[in-house]
Amino acid sequence: MAATLFFWLCAFLAFFFGLGVIVARNPMHSALSLVMTFVASAGLFLLLHAEFLAWILIIVYSGAVMVLMIFVISLLNLQRDEPIEFTAARRWGVAFVVVFAAALLIYLFRDASVGFTYPPKPAISAEWGSAKAIATDLFTRYLLPFELASVLLTAAVIGAVVIARKPDPNEINGMESTGEEPSNQ
């Protein structure tokens, strides 16, 4: 069963690199682990026949978003983080998450109505998950959310530029200007 093997390969890659994101002391290693997690998730999307989203995940996420993140990490010149210290509140948080994960595991394994062999994979048309199918939905049924998403992106671009821009010393008092990386405006 090539599909089963491929699922477990992607699942373990996603899990271990996801673990790498939260245990790596160097933020750059975390970012690279996150890239690999997205690549593994793209493999899972391929297995779900969501080909368009798989490539979008690789191009937009591993390609653009994570490059931005890595760019910021190298811009900030960070040193290694201190090791995680387990305070009482954090122990409770971890215990809660572990209990939640265990409950999820038990539920998914034991409840027959969502058992591991159910439901059968339904027959789908060949172009389900293709760019054509998603675009058809996006531009007909979900036109308003699509347009709102583009408004959101525009707002985010403008907001990011305004927030990250170097503060004008005449404009705001009490903000020190460190004189690094002049922004191109």
Binding site: M1, A3, T4, F7, A11, A14, F15, L44, L47, L48, A101, L104, L105, L108, F109, V114, G115, F116, T117, Y118, P119, K121
Partner: peptide, 12 residues
């Protein structure tokens, strides 16, 4: 055979 539960488990 991979079903819905496997994906939900990984997602969780």
């Amino acid at each position: 055979m991979i079903g819905l539960n496997h994906y939900l488990l990984l997602s969780g």
